[in-house]
């Protein structure tokens, strides 16, 4: 599974995403940091690469997922689809 992460997006898709990203900010996510177990699935699958694992751990000792580039979020909902624990709420304009 790890081999496919990061290869999930077609180059044409990537170019399109870049164009969208440059003009409009259209998505936002809320991550429940205390529920997150830091499995990294959302980080690997995010097509716009807006997510990363945090440097500090949450109360349970996991490095939780956090949005490092909120401006790039396109609100596709992929992170929320793959999140096993349902920590992510995704919004789109």
């Amino acid at each position: 599974m790890n081999q496919t992460i990061g290869k999930c997006i077609h180059p044409l898709h990537k170019a399109l995403l870049g164009a969208v990203r440059a003009t409009v900010r259209c998505g936002a996510v809320d991550i429940d940091a205390e529920r997150c177990k830091g499995c990294g699935l959302c980080v690997g699958w995010c097509p716009a690469q807006t997510l990363a694992l945090s440097a500090e751990a949450n109360l349970r000792g996991y490095r939780h997922s956090t949005q490092v580039r909120p401006r790039d979020c396109i609100g596709c909902g992929t992170c929320a689809t793959v999140c096993p624990d349902g920590c992510i709420t995704c919004y789109r304009k």
Partner: peptide, 26 residues
């Protein structure tokens, strides 16, 4: 503004309880 005015693409379903799942990460 997106959070306030945008539509929700995906949210945690209310049928899942607040209990923390004991499963391993992922």
């Amino acid at each position: 503004t997106i959070r306030r005015e945008g539509r929700v693409v995906h949210r945690r379903t209310p049928l899942l309880t607040d209990a923390h799942m004991h499963y391993c990460p992922g």
